[in-house]
Every structure is written in C-alpha cells, then in structure tokens.
C-alpha cells in the first residue's frame, strides 16, 4: 500500500509516522506542503506538530495551503485520510471533518499516556481492534478539546462516527477520564463515509513494545488489510 505524509513548516511527528508506516510495510513518501500534486496514494497522513506555529488558530493556515486542495480532492474521491493531533486540527479547518478543537479546558499542554476506548470497529482504520477495546496511547496537545454543534453531535451518535473516546484503565467514560474537556470524551471521529479519521492521540508512538507499547499497531494493520 502506498502512503503519503504531508509535511508543513512546524510539523514534528512526520518522521515518527513515516517510521511507523514503513515498519507496517507501507511504501511511504514525504510530501512538502508547497507541492501542487500528490503521488497516487492509498493513504494520506497529516501528521502532528505545530504547523505555522499555530498562528491564528491551530491548523488554520495549513488548512488553506496549496497541497490541501489536492488532499480534499483525494478525500472526495474516497482516498483514506488520517489526521493525527495537529493533523486532526487541520482536517477540521479544511471542513473535511466537522467541529473544531478548542484549547484544553485546564489551559495546560498535556503530554501523557491516556486510555481510549474503540467505539466503532466497522471502518478501514479500526477493523483489527475489538469493539470496546481499551488502548493506552500518548496524547500531546494544547488544543484537544473537541467541540461541535448540536446537529453534528447528534449525527456523530446516530451514524456511529465516533472512533475513540477517552476512558479510564477499566474503560469507564466519565469527566474524570476526560483529559482535555472534549465533548462526550471524544478522542477521534470519522467523516460520514468513514474514509477520513481525525484523532488527537498518537498511534504512531505506540508501535514498539520496547519504547512504549504496541496498542497503535492494529490501526495500521487495519489500513493495510
């Protein structure tokens, strides 16, 4: 499978995701944001980081860059798109995913391993997980507080578009297990066609037992299947 990782000035998880993708046998290419065409890809990843120094709003400037038009075209023709952390913020700024990521409720940058629950395994991103499986995955962000309007909140529930929710070690989803104030503990969502996933946690940091754990591996093996 071919993948492309889009690199913006200020992206800083691009190398990590490239290493994870290659480990999982993807043929990966790095694409600088000034490119105006994309190589044919089965998966496009928008990595984490601080594109354009988070100027204006996190993801706002990257969301209007020239390569993004190509990403939108690819997304609309069904290409798989994964946005992690800043990548999720960029996807909401492009309108490919609805809602937005507000500043963390406690106003602090949070970098820690948290527990998330897999809410829907009927997708190209999550099919190798078990329903309600609990994963331990790192988060590192200042704006991860997911927010959306009432209509979209209902759509997320009705269409089963919530991919992951923050929970505690035993899987309880409550305010106590919500690190950043996100609406309904949302950690990741799909678009309606489920070819786009945006998530705040970093699965690419969880692909090796010797440095963390391998809870992120099944996301990539779902994709390659």
């Amino acid at each position: 499978m071919k993948s492309s990782v889009i690199v913006f000035p200020g992206s800083n998880c691009d190398r990590d995701i490239a290493v994870a993708l290659e480990k999982m046998q993807f043929k990966n290419q790095m694409i600088w944001h000034k490119e105006t065409t994309l190589p044919k890809s089965d998966l496009i990843v928008i990595p984490g980081g601080f594109s354009y120094g988070d100027y204006l709003r996190s993801g706002a400037i990257a969301g209007k860059s020239s390569i993004i038009n190509e990403v939108i075209k690819a997304a609309n023709s069904g290409c798989l798109i994964l946005g992690i952390c800043n990548g999720f913020q960029i996807l909401t700024e492009t309108g490919l995913l609805k809602g937005t990521l507000l500043r963390n409720k406690n106003l602090k940058f949070i970098n820690k391993d948290v527990y998330i629950k897999v809410m829907n395994t009927a997708s190209r991103f999550t099919s190798k997980y078990q329903n309600n499986q609990i994963l331990k995955i790192n988060i590192a962000h200042n704006e991860g507080n997911y927010f959306t309007d009432k209509k979209h909140r209902e759509e997320l529930q009705k269409e089963n578009l919530i991919a992951f929710k923050y929970c505690d070690e035993s899987g309880n989803i409550s305010q106590n297990s919500n690190p950043n104030g996100a609406l309904d503990n949302i950690a990741g969502i799909f678009n309606l066609k489920k070819n786009i996933l945006g998530m705040m946690p970093h699965p690419e940091r969880m692909v090796d037992k010797f440095i963390s754990n391998d809870d992120g591996v099944n996301l990539f093996s779902s994709l390659i299947n």
């Binding site: 204006l56 706002a60 209007k64 609805k98 809602g99 937005t100 507000l102 927010f147 959306t148």
Partner: peptide, 9 residues
Amino acid sequence: EKLLVNLII
C-alpha cells in the same frame, strides 16, 4: 468567513 473566523465557535 474564509480564514479569520472559525464560524463554528
């Protein structure tokens, strides 16, 4: 509406 404001929030 194109850039300066995020109309959702």
